[in-house]
Amino acid sequence: MTATVKAETRIAELPEVAMPSQVAPRDARELSRLFFDQLGVLEEGTSHYQDVRSTLIEMNMSLVRFAAGRFRSRGQEGMEDIVQVGMIGLIKAIDRFEISREVEFTSFAIPYIIGEIKRFFRDTTWAVHVPRRLQEARVHLAKATEELRSRLGRTPTVRELSQLMCLSEEEVNEARLASNGYTSSSLDATINAGDDGETVLADHIGSDDTALELVEDFHALPPLIAELDERDRLIIHLRFVEERTQAQIGEHLGVSQMHVSRLLGRTLARLRAGMLTTH
């Protein structure tokens, strides 16, 4: 029996799901295990693989709606946009999930979905790029300011804020400065230029250097790669330095393309998690 016939036989064993998006969450959890088992034996890119993957996505849409509901209070973006962004996180979770981990897919997927939504808000609601630690510090600063204002009956000083937030006064000032990046003024806004009269803000704005955004990543990534074992470092080198395909890497290592895909996905997830922790 050929591999294709075996795959078709396994497909036939799966329960028929007429409307995957209408499956109840409890039933979706049970069915997802069967479909993930199937996904693990199919060749990526085949029509059978895509059918199983698409069914998994539709069955677990309730996870996206559940996670998106946590952001209703934001009010700045439509829920439809938030759900669409959350779907990206769901798809990433499905592509990276391994049934052998013996972890509930729900527990695995929710952080991916919420992370994607938070990234969306971070990238679209801030007027300028601000490091994540300062974005988080801005939130803590707002809460601390409100708490002290209610307690003291006046605007708190930097020293009082630093004591409550357990930060240095310099870090508090830095967080205050970062808050200015949340909203923006029009580039056509007029400003007083002294003896030269009025001018527009756009005349005083320099051009962006997009390469600067990569500096932190370039410094954070090498130590994380150094912590990988020899095989994982080799796979990273073959894929991103020599730009070999997964099939070519599998041939070089003597393993299947599917195994290379799983190893690469696991390694990239580890590096990504390390980068987020570093930032």
Rank of each mutant, 00 (worst) to 15 (best):
186 S>E: 07
197 G>V: 00
188 D>G: 05
203 D>S: 09
195 D>I: 15
195 D>A: 12
173 N>C: 06
196 D>V: 04
169 E>Y: 02
177 L>Q: 12
164 L>H: 05
182 Y>H: 04
199 T>N: 04
179 S>C: 09
202 A>M: 13
170 E>Y: 15
190 T>Y: 08
198 E>P: 15
189 A>V: 14
190 T>I: 07
187 L>P: 00
166 C>W: 12
195 D>M: 10
202 A>Y: 15
189 A>E: 09
190 T>R: 10
171 E>V: 00
171 E>P: 05
205 I>Y: 01
201 L>I: 13
177 L>M: 09
176 R>H: 09
177 L>Y: 11
179 S>N: 06
166 C>F: 11
187 L>T: 00
172 V>A: 04
168 S>Q: 07
181 G>H: 06
196 D>I: 10
177 L>G: 01
180 N>D: 00
166 C>Q: 10
193 A>W: 10
167 L>E: 06
201 L>Q: 01
180 N>C: 04
192 N>M: 11
170 E>M: 04
172 V>D: 07
199 T>K: 06
193 A>N: 14
168 S>L: 09
164 L>R: 01
202 A>D: 13
167 L>Y: 04
202 A>P: 00
174 E>Y: 15
172 V>E: 11
174 E>T: 10
197 G>T: 00
166 C>V: 10
176 R>Y: 09
177 L>H: 13
192 N>S: 12
